[in-house]
Amino acid sequence: MANINIKLKVWRQKDSQSKGQFEAYEVKQISTESSFLEMMDVLNEQLINDGNQPISFDHDCREGICGMCGLYINGRAHGPDLDVTTCQLHMRKFKDNDSITIEPWRAGGFPVIKDLMVDRSAFDKILQAGGFISVNTGGVPDANAIPISKDDAEEAMDAASCIGCGACVATCKNSSAMLFVSAKVSQLALLPQGRIEASRRAKNMLSAMDDLGFGNCTNTGACEVECPKGISVAHIARLNREFLVANLKD
């Protein structure tokens, strides 16, 4: 355990209408056991005590599952560590006197609303277009009525691990949401309950994605690298297959 000093360059923006700019800050004596967001807390406490405006950023569970946090740190979504969200990043990944640049997600589909906070409601809208199985509460068969192979269930679970943080979009040069869309389409297409609506789902969700200002996929694979849950681009292939089937049916 050690303490380190850090120089920060942080994006500040009053609201969605204003122009933003970088501001420089310094934080001293940060424990390497601290999380990145705890370092931000310390900085904010310092700003408040000095009579300044603290930095606004989204966060909630601070254990890597709610998907609310998301900072672009030194040019990487969720920072330098692999398979973590910003809240799981720890200061031991940095050295004394390091300089860190912090930006919000940058994507047409995610407008900045203040400092490091962005509006990701487009993700909700994509899922509202079909990211579910159309069943009402009650009147469903016994849970063991449909056997599902362990492999399919596991692969569906891999896809279902998506936390909707938006790192895939932020890291994609086209700001495409294909990995996000494919995770839901693939999860449900792998299960017999979800197969029934699989192609319709793919088509509707992709159409919503296009309408909401996300770009196309050009298979660079950057999304997979930065995904904190390690969701594979193989799901995009399954999405494309379902989409193709939907178009053939039309």
């Binding site: 199985i133 016994d142 449909i146 362990k150 269930a153 596991e154 569906a156 279902a160 999860q187």
Partner: peptide, 23 residues
């Protein structure tokens, strides 16, 4: 309680399964 598990499976929740395909 049992209805909740039925509902979850119908919604496509990938609960852990045995090799035989059951929960």
């Amino acid at each position: 309680s049992n209805s909740i598990i039925d509902q979850g499976v119908a919604q496509g929740i990938p609960f852990a399964r045995e090799y035989g395909g059951l929960l």
